[in-house]
Nucleic acid binder design. Structure first.
Lengths: 211, 211
DNA sequence: CGAGGGGTTGAGCCGTTTCAAAAAGAGTGG
DNA sequence: CCACTCTTTTTGAAACGGCTCAACCCCTCG
């Protein structure tokens, strides 16, 4: 979530950062590719990374938007199940999987960090599952906006992703997302300042709509 | 998935079974409850367990159907995010979370088993996510049936769950699930022997439909 | 035999998608 | 700074897939 450096927060040296190198990615750059051999694990240092998966016939589902501190590709076996791409400029800590596994075998704090990170991903994914399975369009859009607002702890949120990205995250079409945003604006719950920035005018109403 | 005892397969003694006790549950019995304090982790020994989550207004989403060997509640923090219930008679290995964490701190094989189990859940959940976000009703139903058939490696599959369970797993209504099953039967892809048992007549067509 | 619970089927409705076009930005070169 | 183009977003109208509501069926059980 929004924890920048979970381990450092407890006064402990972050056990992961020493295991890999930080790489910079520019907007749209591919961090790893679906189907590619999964020999690395990633942690977002700065910026936002989107993970997505393509079906054979071209339908896309976005797994999540990952912010600083989030670990990626924990779930992969032989091959990456997801493509990860930078939304805007990003820095990502890249760790070789073998290095990480070796370290997890020696260092308990590493093993626990991995387990905890996996558990957090699982929890987030469960929420996503309910969104897609049981919520209406307006609920999904309201929920994702509320989530972003909570993450930055502000009423003004910047959207690093396109409407298409939002649609593919929410299991909707771009048109439906656009309509829901317009609807939220019409009912004075939010107000767009630019296409990619909005102000939550009525956070309570937004949470209510998110159900 | 269908791995009965991943560790024993490699000739190693299963590191988890010694850490808890096996309990028996009868049909419909609750293994753990959403919102209840998450002080245990579970592994299905025999039978099928369904995990589900209820929204405040009563909508239900089933997370998964868990078969022998599957670990449950790995994802939970303070409270269980899901309710787990027995579908038919079940045996479940119940392990205290504190015991497990302590053991994971000492025994690398335990820590790795946990990580691997989490990774597997994560992967399975990603598939589920695409189903809910991007697939049509017929594709979802075909996919879950194909999945069951693959699991038991037979063309005759027993459904331990009700139509309502299937609907809540697939993000559909009971009527739609029923219609899709009828449709599959009309097109000779499957054939119901009883309400809860069917024969896959054309496995290839089923996979095709699952997309 | 009657009651009750799951499952199926039908008709009509509604929310989301689809297709199409206009509007608003963003980027480029003069 | 303005014209021009290209892309993204918004809006509109119509079609469609899945949902809702309701009746019916089929078992099981008492």
């Amino acid at each position: 979530m929004s924890i920048r450096n979970p381990s450092a927060a407890g006064g402990v040296i972050d056990p992961l950062s020493a295991l890999g190198e930080v790489r910079a990615y520019r907007d749209g750059a591919e961090v790893c590719s679906q189907g590619g051999s999964a020999d690395c694990v990633y942690r977002v240092v700065s910026g936002v990374v989107r993970t997505s998966r393509l079906t054979e016939d071209g339908r896309r589902q976005i797994g999540d938007f990952h912010f600083a501190g989030d670990l990626l590709a924990l779930d992969d076996g032989e091959q990456h199940a997801f493509t990860a791409e930078a939304l805007g400029a990003c820095e990502v800590l890249v760790i070789r999987r073998r290095t990480l596994e070796a370290q997890a075998g020696q260092d308990i704090t590493v093993a626990q960090a991995l387990w905890r990170a996996s558990a957090e991903r699982l929890r987030k994914m469960q929420g996503h599952l309910i969104q897609l399975g049981r919520k209406t369009a307006i609920e999904r859009v309201a929920a994702v906006l509320a989530q972003f607002a909570e993450q930055v702890e502000r009423d003004v949120i910047d959207l690093p992703m396109s409407r298409q990205d939002l649609a593919d995250y929410l299991g909707l079409t771009i048109e439906t997302v656009s309509r829901m945003i317009s609807q939220l604006q019409a009912s004075k719950v939010i107000r767009l300042t630019t296409l990619r920035q909005m102000r939550i005018c009525d956070p309570q109403a937004l949470r209510q709509l998110a159900a």
